[in-house]
């Protein structure tokens, strides 16, 4: 059971990180980015490539993360900012198109065979009685927590405060001289970095293929929903919860239903939040 919970925390960390980046982007630029997981792919591929060519793991990952930032900022500048006046639905569709564009780009550039992530900690783990804890799991969970703490700190810094201001009250923020363009750029870049990190962590546990991002994105969105799209901590905890519940479902009910767990969670959650019924007047008295 603890084994399941730990695996759940590991998967949950991926979802949490992605969910957090979704919320950051949403709060700063009001765009629901369906491509948030796919944005993390190019950076991960570069990192994996570099490691394959002999680079040490950490520098390779850092380069991947840097590339992730650049991609995020580029996409923001080219595809998002010009369309910033459109509503949620057009932007959602736009980002859906973006997922296809990104995944195709990755497939063409890097091919579609899965790659593995030979990091120094990929093999091996701790053995505690009945439990086998792979190093990669621990790293993932720690990375998630570390990121959460870093973000909490970040949002207290000047730029973090500016980002929060823009998301809460764009008009006033602009009047105060906060450059919304820079903040958007930063938000997307930051989001892309977190996504790249999430994808890299995912890769070290499994493999990296052009289809890797697809199953993750919906669950990340569910986690973001659990945080009402506005709360970073809600999204973070939501992601972890989904990971755990998912794994437990897989064990107790059946592996097929594991995939459905996130779906059921979101459907139930949203249905429950429905406002209570309102009473009606009897047939109209003349």
């Amino acid at each position: 059971m603890i084994q399941q919970i730990l695996s759940g925390l590991e998967a949950g960390s991926w979802y949490s990180l992605l969910a957090v980046s979704i919320v950051i982007v949403m709060k700063a630029t009001d765009v629901p980015n369906f491509a948030q997981a796919q944005i993390g792919m190019p950076g991960s591929y570069i990192a994996v490539n570099l490691i394959g060519q002999g680079w040490p793991a950490i520098p390779a990952m850092l380069i991947g993360l840097a590339l992730g930032y650049i991609i995020g900022a580029l996409i923001e500048r080219l595809a998002i900012r010009p369309l910033s006046s459109l509503g949620h639905f057009p932007m959602l569709v736009m980002t859906i198109g973006l997922t296809y564009a990104l995944v195709s780009f990755v497939t063409i550039t890097f091919g579609s065979e899965p790659r593995s992530f030979p990091a120094p900690w990929s093999e091996g783990g701790w053995l505690l009685g009945d439990l086998y804890i792979p190093y990669s799991q621990v790293i993932t969970i720690l990375a998630g927590i570390a990121l959460a703490l870093t973000l909490t700190y970040f949002f207290r810094t000047t730029w973090g405060v500016r980002m929060r201001a823009i998301s809460e009250n764009p008009g006033v923020a602009r009047l105060l001289g906060i450059n919304s363009g820079l903040v958007s750029s930063l938000a997307w870049g930051l989001g892309a970095v977190i996504s790249t990190l999430a994808m890299m962590l995912h890769t070290q546990a499994t493999v990296l293929a052009d289809s890797s991002a697809d199953p993750l994105i919906l669950k990340a969105f569910v986690a973001a929903v659990l945080g009402s799209f506005t709360s970073l901590s809600g999204a973070f905890i939501g992601g972890l919860a989904i990971g755990i519940l998912e794994n437990l479902t897989g064990v107790w009910i059946g592996t097929g239903w594991k995939e459905a767990a996130a779906l059921v969670i979101v459907v139930v959650y949203l249905f429950v939040r429905m406002p209570s019924l309102v009473k009606t007047i009897k047939p109209r008295e003349v």
């Binding site: 629901p32 639905f89 799209f229 097929g256 995939e259 459907v267 949203l270 406002p275």
Partner: peptide, 25 residues
């Protein structure tokens, strides 16, 4: 129908996926 637009999108997306999952199972 009482959900705010974007949550509706996610809920219906999940619901559609759920139908598919039931079919598979």
């Amino acid at each position: 129908v009482r959900l705010f637009g974007f949550f509706l999108a996610i809920a219906s997306l999940a619901f559609g996926d759920l139908i598919l999952r039931v079919i598979i199972e």
